[in-house]
Structure formats: structure tokens, C-alpha cells
Design a protein around this nucleic acid. Structure first.
Lengths: 337, 337
DNA sequence: CCTGGCACTCCGTGGTCCTCAGTGCTAATT
DNA sequence: AATTAGCACTGAGGACCACGGAGTGCCAGG
């Protein structure tokens, strides 16, 4: 059905349309691509491509535009990820290298990705669930309050204030701290609930309420919200594009963190690039956008996702190259931290 | 020069233009406002207002539009801050109340403010410089690295990894931790450099390199970057507005954190509402926006700023009311934390 | 199976006309 | 002196129309 030449025509249509943002006609195609056939032949091929749903006409006497299905085929079979230039690689390295803590790594990553792709970049904070406890710190504050700080091996810090305990002595806090660290330091977060299960029993009855309060907050802080923190950059790049859906809808969708997290999370094949095109995104406001995402992590352990949101009419090879490269570099930086 | 009635006309022009987004004519004004004079009289007043630069005509046969100078007069003399409704106050309280840590307080505040004003909200993290050290924690990581966590009384946590020390024994870390906390706990951050000045002298010579490395990182983490963290929300609200400058320029300006921080910082009168209108903002891309900002803090100690960015054509009384109210509530929440 | 040729379609552009909101000015009124 | 009614004038924007051009579908011939 789709012979080589028809595929070449589709590829040419996608590439030209991405460049010019105007429906591309058979004549222009014959001129600008070495297809070796006349415009009439291309027209015939286009009819076939249109019947199969890969391209469409905005109106009768206009050129053709790729459909979501057309982009899908292009991404799957007609293009390859475009590696970054040496200059770009150097830029990444020097830009990410200067970061001093996790917040800054994430902030720099997201800006970098937005600049490289000239689109909207999304970076999710490293997941808590797959990291392990490095250290738990309990700090008696003035009054009857305790501050708890949990430090994970991915550099992430969770903090909580525990209140309404009645008076708490320093000694009790010290004991509790030591006991906690013995019990859970080095453990995966998933193992923490089991690991602390029998701790209250080991504590003098009069101090048990405090211990229980601390443990409750500890478990809460680990279970809740683990992956809901993400950062955006490059929204200004959206203004240059004209969307089928209104710009407002797109911006609104981007502000709903839960939506983005779900979208990033739905990678088919972890540790690979994922591309979701147009209507493949379940969210209304993102019907006319595509999302390119990838996992990043340390070693072969995936910690979270990064991604790029742009118009379906985007430079897929280039965007995919940038996302993949940045994902790798972030992993390296995190490993070195 | 400007009698009562002319001021009333100016107020009416501003209010109508904010509502309708269309140049307002003398006829419409006479109909919809009880000014008690005919449209011809209003026309005469408008000529005077235009000569003085408070209003302008987009083109000859159109109605009038307020200029920046007109809005300025409106804000300074013709309007008063509009308090929030009881329902809105309740909404604020319940919405901010549920936050568990500083990150979440800030995140919720900024979303709240964006929703209340239907514009872009900005919240700056509480400044480090004016807070004091609650506790310093040193955690030996595997290998030769130490993690340092500084907790301030405003709930902010700074963390750094210190590397390349050679082997470090647990004991040394313990001693260092105790010494540090004795020296600086409770001190204002500004006092920290002095307070740690003579610490290395008190340490056994063989451990001195480690101590110096830790102190260096500590001072760095407090001095650098103190106030550069801010959060945005509500950019989707910009899509509804049509700016003189392109939307893209505005979005770009909003992504430059340093610009925003400078703008927020330029309040004339701390602990008061500040309004900067149109060209009063030095930044190119924000020429057609206004910024309403306020300080927030605990007690009468200002910690940072919040603000709202919208078109010059904004509802100043309402926006000012929302900003003021939210600033107060955040202060309360922080105090209670 | 490809190609040149041709009739057809429809978008976008630019010109003209017309309406209408709003103005500035003048003369009359209070 | 201030206000008002009346009126001629202005310019933006919408409706209408004509037309050029890019692009198509189709057919007949190579």
C-alpha cells in the first residue's frame, strides 16, 4: 500500500510543514525535494496518503497538512533522533555543572531544556519512592514542637513540624533520633513502614505518644505527595505558536500539575523516549500539542521524568535528541552529587 | 485646574474602560454615570483631561482611554482598596491552612492569589537574610562527603554537599556539629560570619581542613542566592488579555526571575501596598502591565514580597485588596508554623 | 505507471462603499 | 461664565465584490 516513494512524500510533507507552517502543495514538494517524479505523480501519492489518513487538506484548494497519524508514522518509521552538536553538549555540561543543590539542578535543567528546544520544558523532581533514607534528623524547636528533616540519597530533603506534643525532653528526642536512624537509614522508602512498625513497643510507655506522633508524620511525609513536584520553563515559547485550541487552554493545562504528572508517567517503555502526539494526550487542552518525554535516573534506576511540550507541528528529531541528551546529563550530575 | 467633576469623569472613564475594554465616549459616560451634566459638558472636561495627559484617544473619532498618568491619579486619589468579601476570607483561610511545609505554603499562596485576582501572581520565598539559624545538621554520607543542612526559623531549609575532604571520622563531625550549633544557633544570618570567625582556632590542627571546608560552604550557602527564589502562577490568565507589547514579551519578562525580584524589591514604602503602572516598570516587556505588590512577614519584620502582574487596564481596588489580604494571611501562617 | 495539460475551486488580498460612534465647534440658554 | 443643543466632520470597521494565484482532480497520451 505505502511504497517507498509515498513514505518519502509523507516525510517531505512533514518536514516542509514543520519549517513553513503552511500547507504544502505538490508543486512546492517536487521543487524542493529530490523525489525524481513530477508534481502530478506526487498529487496521486498524496491522494493515497490522504485516503489512509496520514495527511489532510484544510480546504479544497489548499496544500496538505500532516495529521496526528501522519506524525506518528513519521516519528516511528521515517525519522531518527538527531544527536546534539558538540557545542550544544559542551553548553549543557557547563550549564548543569555549576548547580549547588537539588533545587538548582532541577531549575537549571528545565531552563536548559526550554532553551535547547525553544519549547516548554517540564522537569519532575526525583521520586522519593525509589530513593532510600540517608538520615533522619529531629530538632527540638522552642516550646513543644519538633522539626523533622528526612534526607534521601537523591539529595531531596523533606521537612515537617510536629506540634501539640506536650513537653518533650531533649533526651527523648535524642533516643528517638538514634532509634529511628538505626531502623531506617539506608532503607528504601517503601520499606520504611514495615521497619518502624515495632518501634513504639521498644519505648518507655510515658514517651510513647511522642514517638507515635513523630512516626505518623514521618509516614505521612513519605507516602503523600511523593511525586507531585514539577517545574516548568519556556512558556514564552508558546506565544509564537498558533494553536488550534486557544493558547489559554494550553496554559491552563500546563498549570495543572497533576495532569502533567500523569502525562509524563504514561510512558509506554520506561528508560526510552516517549512521544505522545496530539489527540493521544487524553487532556482536552493538549489536543493540539505533542509531548516528548524521557526518564532520568542514576544507573539504571529511573527516578523521574523530563519532557517537552510543543505544537504537534514540532521538530521531532531535534526535540527528541535534546530530551534524551539532557536526561542523560541530569542522571550523571545526580550520580556525582 | 482639575475640579471635582473632572476627577469624577476621570474615575468614570477608568472604571468603564476596565469593565469594557473599549474606549469610552462622552455619551456612554453621561448615560451610565450620575454625573448630572450633559455629554457636551463631559466632552469639554475630557478635552481638559486630555490636555493634562490623563486620558488619550486611540484615534480621532474614538472615545478616550486612560493613560498611565491617569491610572496613577486614579490609584492615588480616586479609589480605595476594596476589602475582600467574607466568603473570600474564609476561602483563603481554609486553603492556606492545610499546608504542611514551607514549599506548600508558598505554592498554595501563589495559586490562591492568581485565582482571586484572575491574574499572574508572584510569591517570593521568605528571605534568608532576616531570619536566624534554628539548627545546623551535619550528616556524614558514605565515602568522604558530608551533607550540611541549615534550618532557619522561617522554616526554610538549605542543604549542601561538601566533598573532597579525605576521610572524616564520625567523632569529628559530631564535635563540629556541636560547636557550630553552640556558636550560631539563634543568631541572625547576618551575624553568622562573625560568630564562626574564630572556630577553626579551637580545633585540633589535623581536623582543621575539614572545619574550614564546612564553614566555607556554610557561609556560601547563606550569602549567595538568598532571595532569588520565586514562584509564579496564573500565567494562563494573560492569554485573555491583549497587550500592546506582544504576549511573548510579557511571558519572557516573567520568566526572568531577576527582573521580577528587582521589580518586587522596588517598593517605595515597605510594609505598604505598592503599585507600579505601565512605563513605571523599567523593563521593556512589562511596559503595558501593572504590578501590585506588598510585603509579608512575621510581626513587623518583613520577610519577602508577593505581587500580582496584570494589564495596566486592571481592577486596581480589587487587586490591591486581594494582595493585601493574602500578604497578611501568609504572615499569620508563617508565624504559626 | 508516469506526466503534461486543463478546467475548477476557494482562499486571501485589496478596493469601495456605507454605517456609526464619537468628536469639536458654535450658537443659544441659564 | 458655565452648560447645553445642534450639527458637520472624522475615521474605524464591516459588508461586498472582483480578481489573482496556488493548488487540486482528472484525463489522455507517452
Amino acid at each position: 500500500m505505502l511504497n517507498e516513494r509515498k513514505l518519502a512524500v509523507l516525510r517531505a510533507v512533514v518536514e516542509d510543514f514543520v519549517n513553513t507552517n503552511e500547507p504544502v502543495g505538490s508543486r512546492a514538494l517536487a521543487d524542493r525535494h529530490p523525489l525524481g517524479v513530477s508534481s502530478a505523480t506526487i498529487r496521486n501519492d498524496m491522494v493515497a496518503l490522504e485516503e489512509d489518513g496520514y495527511i489532510a487538506q484544510p480546504h479544497t484548494s489548499a496544500g496538505r497538512v500532516p495529521t496526528d497519524k501522519g506524525y506518528r508514522l513519521f516519528v516511528d518509521r521515517l525519522s531518527s533522533v538527531k544527536p546534539l552538536s558538540a557545542a550544544e553538549r559542551r553548553a549543557i555540561e557547563s550549564f548543569l555543572g555549576g548547580a549547588v543543590d537539588l533545587d538548582e539542578i532541577v531549575a537549571r535543567t528545565v531552563r536548559l531544556l526550554a532553551q535547547l528546544t525553544r519549547q516548554v520544558a517540564i522537569v519532575q523532581y526525583p521520586s522519593l519512592t525509589r530513593s532510600s533514607v540517608q538520615h533522619v534528623e529531629l530538632v527540638p524547636l522552642g516550646g513543644q514542637r519538633i522539626m523533622m528533616v528526612v534526607i534521601t540519597n537523591t539529595g531531596r530533603v523533606e521537612q515537617r513540624v510536629i506540634d501539640g506534643l506536650g513537653a518533650v525532653s531533649e533526651n527523648v528526642v535524642d533516643d528517638l533520633r538514634n532509634m529511628l536512624n538505626r531502623a531506617i537509614a539506608g532503607k528504601h522508602l517503601g520499606e520504611v513502614p514495615d521497619a518502624v512498625d515495632d518501634l513504639p513497643a521498644q519505648i518507655a510507655p510515658e514517651d510513647r505518644p511522642v514517638a507515635v506522633a513523630v512516626l505518623t508524620v514521618l509516614l505521612e511525609s513519605l507516602v503523600e505527595r511523593h511525586e507531585e513536584k514539577i517545574v516548568l520553563a519556556g512558556t514564552a515559547n508558546l506565544a509564537a505558536v498558533d494553536f488550534a485550541a486557544s493558547l489559554r487552554e494550553v496554559l491552563e493545562a500546563l498549570e495543572e500539575n497533576m495532569v502533567l504528572i500523569r502525562l509524563l508517567g504514561e510512558a509506554k517503555d520506561p528508560s526510552m523516549l516517549t512521544v505522545r502526539i496530539g489527540a493521544e494526550n487524553f487532556h482536552e487542552g493538549l489536543r493540539s500539542t505533542s509531548i516528548v518525554s524521557a526518564d532520568y535516573g542514576v544507573g539504571n534506576q529511573s527516578l523521574a521524568k523530563i519532557g517537552v511540550v510543543g505544537p504537534t507541528r514540532m521538530d521531532y528529531p531535534g526535540t527528541m535528541g535534546a530530551v534524551r541528551a539532557v536526561a542523560r546529563y541530569v542522571g550523571q550530575i545526580l550520580a556525582g552529587q
